[in-house]
């Protein structure tokens, strides 16, 4: 049992996630339509073939990494910062239409810079960079390429 636990790693967990996704995909396919209707292939026939192939390849990856002595796949040990980036980006998406491009983008860039360089000093410099980058991108999109970005209150 201990030996089995040692051999299982993050790569196997990912295979399990893929397996669950694939199973949900198959269930959804059968919910939509049977693979063959009136003697002809339906909209779910091809997806079911690829999900069958997915099961085979997931199994191959799982057992290959199980038998490998040195697993090369990287661990998720350093995931704190990427998780923060994702969280900040979700906030940015939420605020984007509500407070408009400029205010939300300044906050977003400030947050990303802070994640990339965690130093309490230089807050004003970080803010300065955030404003400059947001303005440059604004000019590039709105003025040069004439792409409309949301204003404060969600107006275009």
């Amino acid at each position: 049992m201990l030996n089995l636990k040692k051999k299982l790693n993050i790569s196997h967990l990912f295979c399990v996630i893929l397996f669950i996704w694939n199973t949900l995909y198959v269930i959804e396919a059968f919910r939509i339509a049977p693979p063959i209707q009136k003697g002809q292939v339906s909209a779910t026939f091809f997806p079911l073939i690829i999900s069958f192939l997915m099961y085979i390849t997931i199994a191959l990856v799982f057992f290959t990494s199980y038998n490998q002595k040195n697993v090369t796949a990287t661990s998720f040990g350093q995931m704190n910062k990427p998780a923060l980036v994702v969280l900040v980006t979700i906030f940015y998406i939420t605020l984007f239409k509500i407070i408009g491009y400029m205010a939300s983008s300044i906050l977003y860039i400030f947050a990303i810079i802070s994640i990339f360089e965690i130093k309490k000093k230089n807050i004003l410099i970080k803010l300065f960079y955030a404003v400059i980058i947001a303005v440059i991108i604004y000019i590039l999109y709105e003025k040069i390429f004439l792409i409309r970005l949301p204003k404060l209150g969600g107006n275009m």
């Binding site: 980036v85 980006t89 940015y92 998406i93 984007f96 491009y101 983008s105 977003y108 860039i109 990303i112 810079i113 990339f116 360089e117 960079y129 955030a130 980058i133 947001a134 440059i136 991108i137 999109y141 792409i147 409309r148 970005l149 275009m156």
Partner: peptide, 21 residues
């Protein structure tokens, strides 16, 4: 690099928005 990647983050997200507004 903090300027570089924060700019990439912004361009990427705004780019995603522009595809269908």
């Amino acid at each position: 690099r903090k300027i570089l990647y924060s700019s990439i983050a912004l361009v990427a997200m705004v780019g995603g928005y522009v595809s269908t507004y």
